[in-house]
């Protein structure tokens, strides 16, 4: 789940993808922990370096399977139990149910995956986002390190130095940044 802390964060802005990935690698070697990374487009190396994974595909699979079972139960109840109608002597439990089940499986998979995505990612219309940098949607890349209360002035200087030595073009402070 996403956590939002109200304390301050140190933000390093990078100009290129290479500089960003290089900086992530170097920060991982240091004693500081990366709180989050922001990019204008998905970068697989960033996911890899941060060790991020998602269970969304598995959930989608179970949603779809659940949908199939639910729809079959519904068809069985309506056509076999509740109101069976003999159409040309064909069986009540018809193989052509497969078509309705097939389509509804997809519908369940899609709708529930969407709901899950927006819920876990906490996205909803009207949300006021904390925009980390105005060019994050354009061509800048950002690494965030949390400035916790336990940090001394020396730690902060060290983080700043770490960003500068890794080609950060801009360093700033930002409140309320969501963690990974």
């Amino acid at each position: 789940m996403l956590k939002t802390d109200t304390n301050e964060n140190i933000v390093g802005v990078f100009d290129t993808e290479e500089a960003l990935i290089n900086a992530i690698k170097n920060i991982k070697k240091s004693s500081f922990k990366i709180k989050n990374v922001f990019t204008p487009y998905p970068i697989h190396e960033v996911f890899h370096e941060l060790g991020l994974t998602t269970r969304l595909p598995w959930l989608a699979f179970f949603y779809a399977v659940g949908g199939t079972i639910l729809v079959f139960a519904f068809l069985y109840w309506t056509s076999v139990i509740d109101y069976p109608i003999s159409i040309g002597g064909k069986p009540d439990l018809s193989p052509s149910f497969i078509i309705v089940m097939f389509v509804m499986t997809i519908l369940f998979g899609i709708v529930l995956s969407l709901v899950t995505f927006f819920t876990v990612q906490r996205l909803y219309p009207g949300k006021v986002p904390v925009i980390i940098h105005e060019d994050i949607v354009d061509d800048k890349y950002v690494i965030v390190i949390e400035k916790s209360n336990a940090m001394t002035e020396r730690d902060v200087v060290a983080i700043n130095k770490l960003f500068v030595s890794n080609m950060a073009i801009e360093i700033g402070l930002k409140n309320d940044v969501e963690a990974i």
Partner: peptide, 21 residues
């Protein structure tokens, strides 16, 4: 935009969702 900010985990889930859909 639903408050999209472009965080790494957001992009990861976004890509996963695109593939699922």
């Amino acid at each position: 935009s639903f408050g999209w900010v472009g965080s790494a985990k957001g992009w990861l889930r976004f890509e996963a969702l695109s593939m699922i859909l």
